[in-house]
């Protein structure tokens, strides 16, 4: 799946994450989180798993996490990627 336009998913509410994706020539993941010190690695892993499942190799992925579970972050990343791709959701 290819990111061809800017798209977002999620909210800034507690237990949720706001995810913004945009086209780029390399893969870049930016994470800000209320639990960054404890969970940055786990969030990065969850994001990379979802990108691999969707076949995404390039793009800028920005995560603003408000204490979301990994499965919530993955849902928001998947939604944003699908909204940003050719086929849409």
């Amino acid at each position: 799946m290819e990111i061809i336009r800017k798209a977002w998913a999620g909210t800034g509410e507690s237990s949720d994450a706001y995810v913004l994706v945009s086209p780029a020539n390399t893969l870049e993941i930016e994470i800000s989180s209320v639990v960054y010190n404890q969970y940055a690695k786990a969030i990065d892993k969850a994001v990379r798993e979802t990108l691999a499942d969707l076949g995404v190799e390039k793009g800028t992925i920005t995560i603003n996490d408000k204490g979301a579970l990994d499965c919530v972050i993955q849902a928001r990343v998947e939604t944003a990627i699908k909204r940003a791709s050719e086929a849409g959701v």
Partner: peptide, 14 residues
């Protein structure tokens, strides 16, 4: 609708 559908699916899986 797309966002909720994927979120509920992931929570049911988890």
């Amino acid at each position: 609708k797309d966002s909720a559908r994927i979120l509920v699916r992931n929570l049911l899986r988890r």
